[in-house]
Amino acid sequence: MATRRVAALAGAALLMGIGGGARSTERLGIGRPATQTEIAAWNIDIDRDGRKLPPGSGSVAQGRAVFETQCASCHGSRGEGGAGERLVGGQGTLASAKPIKTVGSFWPYAPTLFDYIRRAMPLNAPQSLGDSDVYAVSAYVLHLNGLVPDDATLDAKSLAAIRMPNRDGFVSDPRPDVKP
């Protein structure tokens, strides 16, 4: 079976070598092709425009309940912070001497919030929340920041449509910027 795989890859490499550019030549026949099922199970990347957001939806009210049991012990009931980071407030402080960087004041894209909660939160049990709970917690955190109303329900489309206050706050790297 392994031999057949290698032979198949070698054949593919030959075809690529003829038809493809420099980037797709010189295959060594190492590894095996991944199936679409395998890729779908592991690929949890969400882009900034939310085009890769999954099905499902969650309301602010649901999110408040999930947040209370899963998040509040570190982030505080209202996202004010504790052992975990502050999630709320700080809008208008970024240019001050004491900037407060939160989801509401600093994060440029709402879909990134879904991505991060789904992949890494809660800290003690990451990837334990279902997609609808992740939508719900995202909705609650955005609501605490005044970015969605109390009766909001978010899904792929409505989460992607949220314009974060600091969306245009990022610039590219100009270094070297300090002259001796």
Binding site: L94, P99, V103, W107, Y116, F170, V171, D173, P174
Partner: peptide, 14 residues
Amino acid sequence: TAKYTDLMPDGTAR
């Protein structure tokens, strides 16, 4: 985005 970006005095972040 939220981390590993460098906040400047004018409030923009690199």
